[in-house]
Every structure is written in structure tokens, then in C-alpha cells.
Amino acid sequence: METIVAVKDLTQKIGKKTVLDGLSLEVSTGECLGIFGMKGSGKTTLLHILAGIDRFTSGKVEVAGVDVRKNEGFKKYLGLVTQERSLFHDLSAAENLDFIAALKNAGRENIDRLIERLELGEVLNQPAGSLEAGLYQRLALACALLNKPRLLIADELIGAIDLDSRRIILRELETFLAGGGTCIWAFSNADFLPHAGRVGWLEKGKITFYQPAEALARWNDRLQSLAGQGGDGGA
């Protein structure tokens, strides 16, 4: 298997806080790596570095064989769904697709297919800002897939959204993986652990890898130990 993402000794300090503390990881083509961690554990920080958005303190990050500090070239293989709403909220869904396609220099031919697959036909003329959470995430995914990316970076792809949208998104994700795509998917809800091929558990700036079943077991252990203490204190 070809390695598409290679991270070595990545450290990110924001202000005085060390968010990522010398972590390393590798992702192979076709893999679906789940990044699991609580709020504030650095998932978004890591993903934004992989997507070539944020500067970082030290370490080496290669995506599609390109050192992200030196070159922008890898971005044409990249799709990104952000945790925060980052679509153009005063533009309609259709305009968002059109504009982001232009930004990515992607052909228009993909747009219709994605509208159909993510079932966006009815909301094309609505401003992105007014879409409900589920529809918004579907649109965000459609925008991320416009350039037929080799690597999809998805941050909280599925939050607390309606089940229908959840089904549609998971279906599209499977299609994407089946087509040979690679996915890095960050989430904080343990329900999604089984959907990942491999799980990177992010905590205190370090990452530990597990098989999904193993990660789920550890998570349940933790919940039980908390319950055993009789408290409802934070994890």
C-alpha cells in the first residue's frame, strides 16, 4: 500500500499550550483513519495542519508525497469538511458548489452527480446559512468531493444531525472509500468508532492507534470506571 499521509514528530504550540506533542502517523491509500478525541484534544488542529491551512511549530508533514510546508501541489488531491460552518452562508447551495468548484479548478461535470447522490436537489436555491445541520453537512461533503479528491479530511463529518442525512453521508463515504479514496475522519462520538478502519486516539497531544473494536472496548472501560467511581465528573 502506498502511503498518502506521513507525519513525523509533529508539534504544535498555540500560545503557551502544547496542543500536539511530537506525534507521528502514517495513512495508506484506501484507508479510513478515524481520529478520536474529546473536545479540545487537538483533532481540528491536526486536521488543519494536514490540510495545509495552519502553520505548525515543528515536525514534518507529507501529503501525497509533498512536504506541506514547501508546496501547495497536494491540495488538488484534497477534500476538506470543516468542523465549523465554512461554506459561504450568503450564497445559495448551488452557488457554493459552483464557486468552490472554481476555487478547486474542478470540472462542473461532478456537480450534478454529487447533487443527486447527496440528495441536495431541493435546496439548491437556499442560502447555505439557512440550511439545517444535516443538509448543511451533506452540502459541505459535496463541496469537499467536487475535485474527486484522493484524500478526504473530514472534521466532525456527522454531528447531531438527522438520521436520514447521516445515512446519506455514510453511504457516500462508503462509495468514496470503495472508489479507492482515503479518508481521515475526526469525531468525538464513540458511536462512529466502528465505521473507521483504524482509530487514532488523540489525547494530551499524543496519538495512540487501535483497531476500532479495541478502541470501543477501551472507551467502554473508561465509562464504566467512571460509573464505578459513582461520579459524573468529566473524562
Partner: peptide, 14 residues
């Protein structure tokens, strides 16, 4: 402010 800058940064547009 609207986070849409992320779309510009993550896209392969010089």
C-alpha cells in the same frame, strides 16, 4: 470571521 477563508486555503488555488 466566517471561516470561509478555510475554503480558499484548502483549495489548490494560488
Amino acid at each position: 470571521e466566517r471561516k470561509t477563508w478555510l475554503q480558499f486555503l484548502s483549495a489548490p488555488v494560488p
